[in-house]
Simulated assay, not measured.
Amino acid sequence: MSAEEPSKKKKSNQFTIMKDDSTDGHGGYGVGTVTLENISPVIIDPNENRAFVDMGAMHARSEIERRVKFLPNKDEVPNGLLYWIVWVTVERSEKGPFYSGVAGSEVIVDRSIKRAYKSMPQHVNHMDKSMKGKIIIEHMDDKSKELLGDFLREFNPVMWENSTQELKDSLPQK
């Protein structure tokens, strides 16, 4: 890119898929370590009827988390809007890649006062459970589950088809 060319920021909207498996038997550095290469945060915004991958959530810097101060008490953000960060893990089976773990964690944001709430222990726990292949979305509202289901089905129909019946039954279709 030349100095005169305007900088173009391409919005990435894809899942990270495991490229290095520390348990593949090579016996080298990192064997047995946890890798985050196969987990992606999907933001569910029921207020704007949208779902999208935002890798910034891996470091609490997603679009919905920026420019707000997080408070430890949900009651301190009474007029906040509900969002979900859904931790989606992708694995490979003999059939191909599939959504193996899906766990949703709430975030409440009030832009007018630049304050927000999220439970960090819940986010860490849900990320861990997702990486272990658990489906934890029963606490999500129906509209958000519908947005998540539509997103996962449309994002990669093959991964959706290869996914467990438990996941498919957990996410309503229109």
Rank of each mutant, 00 (worst) to 15 (best):
G133M: 08
N73H: 11
W84T: 04
K10S: 13
K19V: 02
S7F: 15
W84G: 04
G27D: 10
S100A: 15
H126G: 00
F52L: 09
L82S: 05
G25S: 12
G27K: 11
D110N: 10
M120S: 13
Q14C: 11
Q165Y: 08
G149C: 07
K11M: 15
I137T: 07
H26Y: 15
G27N: 11
P6Q: 00
F151L: 12
Y83F: 14
E161W: 11
F155K: 11
N49T: 14
K19M: 15
Q14M: 08
N73G: 06
M120C: 12
T35H: 00
K132H: 12
I136S: 09
H139P: 00
L167N: 13
A51H: 01
L152N: 04
N79W: 04
E166W: 07
I43P: 02
S100L: 10
P46M: 00
V88N: 05
I44Y: 09
E37R: 09
E37W: 10
V68Q: 01
E146C: 13
K168E: 14
G101V: 04
A51L: 02
V68C: 01
M131Y: 01
D169P: 00
K69A: 04
K168W: 14
V77A: 00
T35G: 05
E76W: 08
G28S: 06
R66N: 10
H26N: 15
K19I: 03
K74M: 07
I108Q: 03
M120Y: 15
V90A: 01
V86L: 05
Q14W: 05
T164E: 13
A51E: 05
V34F: 12
A116H: 01
V88A: 04
K174P: 06
V90I: 15
E91M: 12
Y29N: 13
L147T: 04
D54G: 06
V42E: 03
G28R: 08
S93E: 12
Q14P: 08
E146W: 09
V109T: 01
S62D: 07
D75E: 10
